[in-house]
Design a protein around this nucleic acid. Structure first.
Length: 291
DNA sequence: GTTCCCCTGCGG
DNA sequence: CCGCAGGGGAAC
């Protein structure tokens, strides 16, 4: 679910809940694919550690700890990281929601999908990591230990230059849409913002990477930056699962031009937005505006 | 390059 | 019942 903007909004919201606080205890669910580091080991490694800084690389959140070790978090498709006290029905499944009394503003209670509960020594608000589909990941790194996945990330999508992009695309016959999703080319773009950026740059998602001219690469990185910045400003996109850690919906979904708008008239030319399959993901684009 | 997998829930 | 979903990794 979350792409760079949602991860960045999440980081900004929860950083104050992590930074400078000592973890007293970590509660977890039972072992699953979610845990790259097993629950027991995670609990042992984090106990008594103080979080110094919460940073972001691409779609990863990285907590640096006071003993030089690192906690790496990825939200996957349905991951939610938020502080205790948030009251939001969207955190719950439809069935769980139905059983809630809408009158009393009940705050979130950890449920079966709440895989991490950070409890702090100051006794203040806990931090929860909830993930229904468990495509999210948590991973602990010893001091100086490198994560091969992080090492493979390309330049952050907010920072990559047209020149850098052009260089990565040369000699690639893969469709540009798929290349935008490739985190080793640039880090942070996912399915929504890839489609939106290609629309704003006027580029057909099926074109081979190597086919893009220098000016088009320039236009594309500008479009990528514009949609990502704008989405961060508006609190991200709330389409199905995502909500801000402060419990509010993002607003960027209202500014979408193509994603999830199959059959709707293009905002520029009124042609119906088309949908197609690339890899296992769907792509949305305007057949008239994007060439 | 595709294809399939991980997992759960929703909506047609 | 089926196909769909802001992700990523591994196997053909």
């Amino acid at each position: 679910m979350p792409e760079l903007p949602e991860v960045e909004v999440t980081r900004r919201c929860v950083a104050p809940l992590f930074e400078g606080r000592q973890i007293a205890q970590l509660r977890t669910t039972r072992d699953s694919y979610f845990f790259r580091t097993k629950p027991r080991a995670l609990q042992r490694r984090l106990k008594q550690r103080t979080v110094q800084k919460l940073t972001r690389r691409g779609k990863y959140l990285i907590a640096s700890l006071d003993d030089g070790s690192t906690l790496v978090l990825h939200l996957g498709m349905t991951g939610q990281l938020f502080g205790e006290g948030v009251s939001s029905p969207r955190l719950l499944s439809a069935t769980a929601r139905a059983s809630l009394d809408p009158e009393k503003q009940e705050s979130f209670k950890p449920d079966a999908h709440t895989h991490l509960q950070f409890e702090f020594a100051d006794g203040g608000p806990r931090v929860f990591f909830r993930d229904v589909r468990k495509f999210g990941k948590v991973h602990w790194l010893a001091p100086d230990q490198e994560d091969p996945r992080l090492a493979k990330l390309g330049p952050d999508a907010l920072k990559i230059t047209g020149r850098q992009l052009a260089r990565s695309l040369s000699s690639r016959k893969t469709p540009i849409k798929s290349l935008l999703l490739d985190q080793s080319v640039l880090a942070g773009v996912g399915n929504i913002y890839a489609d939106e950026a290609l629309f704003h740059a006027g580029i057909d998602p099926r074109r081979a990477g190597a086919d893009l001219k220098a000016e088009e690469c320039q236009a594309l990185v500008k479009a990528v930056r514009r949609v990502l910045r704008r989405s961060i400003q508006t609190g991200g996109s709330s389409i199905s699962d995502y909500i801000n850690p402060d419990g509010a919906d993002g607003q960027f979904q209202d500014e979408r031009c193509v994603y999830g708008l199959t059959g709707q008239p293009c905002s520029q030319c009124q042609s119906p937005i088309q949908r197609l399959r690339q890899g296992q993901r769907s792509t949305h684009y305007c057949p008239a505006c994007q060439i």
